[in-house]
Amino acid sequence: MAPVVKIEALHKIYDSGEVPVHAVRGVSLEIQRGEFVALMGASGSGKSTLMNLLGCLDRPTRGRYLLDGIDVSGLDRNELADIRNQKLGFVFQGFNLLARTTALENVELPMMYGVHKLTNREVRQRATQCLETVGLGNRAEHFPNQLSGGQQQRVAIARALVNQPQILLADEPTGNLDSKTSVEVMGVFQKLNDQGITIVMVTHELDIAHFCKRNLILRDGVIVRDEIVKDRLSADVEMKKLQSAEAEAKLTSSD
């Protein structure tokens, strides 16, 4: 089967300042369907730039990017928008939900800009279904400020899933969350990955990267390590460990 992502000698040079910045210097990469990849690196390593390129938010200076078999390196603004809408799902560090807008309406957002004509009922149905997938079926009418950080991030994941994308892209999805909620969100990702969804996430936390199947480490705009995670963590197991630790510390009741 063809890889979902195939990039060849990708370069990105920012020349807006006085000195041109060579952020990505010839990255070649293949990601197969069903993979769960963590993109790691120190700040300035080019991981965010690579993520923006993968997410079709930015265009490479040189090189080729085949997403689901389509060469997206030469597409214009609107064509890229359609690709983002149909083939990609985004989860951000800061959740980026619309304020004063219910969880359900937030999840409906990508369908507002879809090329498929959906009836209002279909839109509502799909959004509700995605909220149920992330375990928030009973929070549909809540506003973001009525939800915890973990719940907000799960709404964001539901929004990313609603157009049935080829890849889920997550930029530091646990960056704003405490360790327990991080494990909770990683659990959602693992469950989705088990259902066959390809996930690429940026993180700088090693333990979070251990929930993934493959780790890529970037330094100075090139991939310096590409390895399969051997002792992969399971979110369910980690969650149980955390709960028992909490019970011992009498933070929560033992049952």
């Binding site: 928008a81 983002r84 809408n85 619309l98 800009y113």
Partner: peptide
Amino acid sequence: TREIGIRLAVGAHGRD
């Protein structure tokens, strides 16, 4: 601005 960014990221065209 952020809202516009989100909309553009999830596939809104400039025209939308």
